[in-house]
């Protein structure tokens, strides 16, 4: 029982990342009709926003008279730098700011990601709206590789540890909370936070689309672009902004993911394929479908990696997501919540 609860928790937290990326993908597909293979790269760039802010916050100066640090007794060390934030705000506050750099990166990443999204859409992707999906896939995939290589050029290929604030390090006894023996279901604080953050972000996106005039126009545009344009509304501009928002959602998913796994330039590609499966299983163009499928496949993947399951069906952990996709598409060809007429012309 405890193992089942543990894997459900794990699936929800894995599914959070899938759901957020798939949500952004669906937003772009639903509004602009573009299959964006660069979406994984946006997730990765989000994670590197957090690395970048950490680097910015730790930029320092060498205090006067500081001696070169000895590296294990060798003479090639550099003097130790003191971060400017410690100089400006005092040592304790400065260290706390650096410690909280991942949550602070949310504020940094939102404008950066929206800007990157808008530039990407206006600068490149808009030229491919009338081209076949295959062209869009090729150009966005190429873009993903370019973005990846740029990040690798500046940050290297190695993973960069980006720890959570000290307050969130450690784990939480979930079992004790639901009346089980203590120590049976232990779950890391940050992963629980990631799940809560994902839910909040998903809720915010849905609320934005549901309860704002802007969102209403976007939804109308998704349903019937031509009519909305004929009413004199500049749908294109709104869709561009939606692209920016979708980029920000992927970026925020990346920012918050950095303490879970140290980011590297390739992390976007690792998520990309699964996210597409999530979108297809959820139903092309269906936002609730993307979220539902994200969590569902996350849970499925977690269960498939249980030792008991692998012993019974060796290798199932590597293919379970694709098996599930096949089964769902055979029984519900439009995906879980897909609508008729989307991607069917």
């Amino acid at each position: 029982m405890d193992q089942i609860i543990l894997q459900i928790l794990n699936g929800l937290d894995k599914g959070s990342a899938y759901a957020l990326i798939a949500l952004g993908l669906t937003l772009i597909f639903g509004t602009l009709g573009v299959v964006n293979f660069a979406h994984g790269a946006l997730f990765m760039i989000g994670a590197f926003c957090s690395v970048t802010l950490n680097r910015i916050l730790t930029i320092g100066y060498v205090p006067e008279g500081a001696e070169a640090q000895s590296v294990g007794g060798f003479s090639f060390g550099k003097p130790k730098e003191v971060p400017y934030v410690e100089y400006w705000f005092g040592e304790a506050t400065g260290q706390a700011i650096v410690d909280w750099s991942v949550p602070l990166s949310i504020l940094f990443a939102i404008p950066v990601m929206i800007a990157i999204g808008v530039i990407m859409e206006r600068g490149l992707i808009k030229h491919f709206y009338k081209r076949p999906h295959a062209d869009q896939i090729l150009v966005t995939f190429g873009l993903a590789i370019v973005l990846q290589e740029i990040i690798k050029f500046y940050f290297g290929a190695n993973q960069i540890p980006t720890p959570a604030p000290e307050a969130f390090v450690g784990s939480f006894d979930f079992g004790a909370l639901i009346g089980m023996d203590p120590g049976v279901i232990i779950y890391p604080y940050w992963r629980i936070l990631y799940f809560v953050f994902a839910l909040a972000l998903i809720f915010a996106v849905f609320a934005f689309l549901r309860y704002t005039t802007f969102g209403m126009v976007v939804r109308a545009g998704m349903a019937d672009r031509e009519t909305v344009t004929l009413l004199g509304i500049d749908v294109d501009r709104r869709f561009t902004i939606m692209f920016g928002i979708a980029a920000a959602v992927a970026g925020l998913a990346g920012v918050m993911y950095t303490p879970i796994n140290s980011p590297n330039y390739h992390m976007g590609m690792d998520f990309l394929v699964i996210s597409f499966v999530v979108v297809v299983v959820g139903g092309m163009g269906s936002l609730p479908g993307a979220v539902l499928a994200g969590f569902l496949l996350g849970i499925l993947e977690s269960f498939a990696s249980m030792r008991e399951v692998i012993e019974l069906l060796p290798g199932v952990n590597q293919v379970v997501i694709y098996l599930a996709a096949i089964v769902i598409l055979l029984t519900r060809p439009r995906g879980l919540m897909g609508r008729a007429g989307v991607m069917e012309d």
């Binding site: 193992q3 543990l6 894997q7 794990n10 699936g11 937290d13 894995k14 779950y187 992963r191 879970i260 796994n261 992390m267 690792d270 993947e301 977690s302 990696s305 249980m306 030792r307 692998i310 952990n317 590597q318």
Partner: peptide, 16 residues
């Protein structure tokens, strides 16, 4: 337990 080479999140293997 064997883990796929392409695995990035090992939480479901580590949790149990």
């Amino acid at each position: 337990v064997k883990t796929p080479l392409a695995q990035t999140d090992f939480s479901s293997y580590v949790a149990p």
